[in-house]
Nucleic acid binder design. Sequence first.
DNA 1: GATGAATGAGCGTTCATTCAT
DNA 2: GATGAATGAACGCTCATTCAT
Lengths: 208, 208, 208, 208
Amino acid sequence: MARRPLTKVRKIASQQRSRATVDALVEATARILVKDGFDKASTNRIADVAGVSVGSLYQYFPGKEALVAAVIERHQHEIMQTVRGELAGVLDQPVEKAVRKLVAAAVKAHRVDPKLHRVLAEQIPRVGKLEKLERFNGENFTLFRTYLESRRDELLVDDLELASFVCVTSIEALTHNAVLHHSRMLSDAAMEALTDEVARLVIRYLKG
Amino acid sequence: MARRPLTKVRKIASQQRSRATVDALVEATARILVKDGFDKASTNRIADVAGVSVGSLYQYFPGKEALVAAVIERHQHEIMQTVRGELAGVLDQPVEKAVRKLVAAAVKAHRVDPKLHRVLAEQIPRVGKLEKLERFNGENFTLFRTYLESRRDELLVDDLELASFVCVTSIEALTHNAVLHHSRMLSDAAMEALTDEVARLVIRYLKG
Amino acid sequence: MARRPLTKVRKIASQQRSRATVDALVEATARILVKDGFDKASTNRIADVAGVSVGSLYQYFPGKEALVAAVIERHQHEIMQTVRGELAGVLDQPVEKAVRKLVAAAVKAHRVDPKLHRVLAEQIPRVGKLEKLERFNGENFTLFRTYLESRRDELLVDDLELASFVCVTSIEALTHNAVLHHSRMLSDAAMEALTDEVARLVIRYLKG
Amino acid sequence: MARRPLTKVRKIASQQRSRATVDALVEATARILVKDGFDKASTNRIADVAGVSVGSLYQYFPGKEALVAAVIERHQHEIMQTVRGELAGVLDQPVEKAVRKLVAAAVKAHRVDPKLHRVLAEQIPRVGKLEKLERFNGENFTLFRTYLESRRDELLVDDLELASFVCVTSIEALTHNAVLHHSRMLSDAAMEALTDEVARLVIRYLKG
DNA sequence: GATGAATGAGCGTTCATTCAT
DNA sequence: GATGAATGAACGCTCATTCAT
């Protein structure tokens, strides 16, 4: 009986140690990406910034790509955390409200960690296999498409596939550009105005 | 007196040679960017593909960045060449027609060299301060803004700055995504449909 | 008094455990050497295959070299086990018989674990001072030398040192090459033929 | 007319520079192999010892293997240089003379650069595809086989394939061992004695 | 004793850039 | 001007070894 807890504690201790190392590495990667960009994020530097040896880095990640992937995953997780509630009842709501909520959610998503979001969006495509961000947009697309389907009678548009593409792409681009490139707009009032305007764009398009 | 013309001829000859070398280098850079991406575009390889020595490359360009910048410039020049006429009378035309023309021009612009455009858009931000592409959009923005100003009475929107941002960003994003990511849409009929739809989005937004 | 036997049992138990660990490590080393070669035999991998932690590996062996040395020792032990009887009465027998027996023993020795033998012979010299294999040949040399001494009158050769070198080296090289490189010869009949031929080589050399 | 020689000189100059670099690298590789063995022959170290940058190493050799291959080639070239004449008339000569010449040639071959030969023989097999050394032995085998064929009537052996294997393997092993492991034998007189003894071994085997 | 996370020197290799020719 | 051999810092990654738990 004496050894059980001991064993358990050891295991937890090492798990904590591992976890801390992994977290430090992902955090360091994110920081370097934001501060210096993808090309400066060398494995040695990441390890260095994480206060860990390169060896440890490779104990937990098969390579640089995996670290970036982890950063992306973490970022998306955080976005989800923030946005989830926002999108809950959306499917049951009238177009005006639903669209406004979607736009507001998009804005919120882009404000989670704007600098990181920008780097991920701009510099990561080259990694090739890392289509996590696109998959994310794919989800948005599907959600929106489903919603339009359910309201088809109220809508002015007839090709719902095309309409979804138009709306999702516009919302994404507008929030992305506003938040990431024109950060002077970042005042809450300005954000409100933007949200209104984007919602207006989409609603007029859908309902005339 | 005997040497002047000779010199001149030589000079011209050498100027032509220089020009040819520069062109070959820019062309080689573009080709490699399209075929293999930014990371594989090493200076040695560019010189090789251009049929020129690395030394010569550095005679004409201070570094890799400058070559990419030249490619961007050339690409924009080609786009301008293609689009210029399209936008000529636009300022004098009614909203419906003007917007349609602008959208059509945007589509045309993205069809000039889509693969190159994609690479430039996705992989180049890393080069740091190369905001040539943004400057390009800036011009579009200004043009559009000016147009809205001239038609302000007909419009439903009141913040023209904001409205310009909304319209230009949407048009750019939609054509970019359609042409570069969903190339299955590339049939002329589909392109027509897209143009119509984007124009509809903008016009409804502007005029209700 | 109550604890003595207990302690003893524990000690034995742990000795057994130690023995098992050591064996597992040596076995794992041998397996990896055979399957993947010296370069792939990293200490971490050996420990892994042995189902033991790296830490434990270093508890029992001062380093990688020591493990390989242990494998060599074990291999030689197994060869001895197999060959010992073969060489028992050899000293009392006439040249023809004795030589034939020696050659047969050499063949047998090389057939104990040919793949391991080959790896040890080819890849181990790099380890530096591991002359265990040579020491092994040294024993053969001494044995053979002693035998020739006892038969000196019957022999055609006069420098027995030289003759021993010639015979032992030839026997070793021929059996080694035959077994390890030309494994198509491995049929029992072929092996018999080889043994005959090598014996003939040596006997003619010694007795004309 | 003025530029031709200039051009030529330039080209020669650069060819000489290249040649010198390549030679320095091969030489450095050989030296390190001899002094410290295969494992210590890292590309950086080779370049260092050659007085050349790593970059230059990779300009001329695709990797470490290629350097070792070049060393092997050079070594074999030197052996050929030394041995060629020795084997010229051999096919037309009587067994005694021919065998003696072959053995003498083998000894000579092993004395070209014994330490290097040893390293190449012992540490290189792991590279896998580098069967240059074996191919070399293959040539010896073929030559010997052909010779035996032409003298078949005089010989006591009937399986010429097997006999060739026995002879070539023995000669190679004996000269190799004598020269590389027992270098105390290296006096010319001792070498003479060894040559005689090995020739005797082979001749008695072939002719009784 | 046993564990396995952590270490870091060192590996093979690339590539933007320079400079003697 | 043109050449291309040469450079070397920096990269991604491995692995024998140590040591806190």
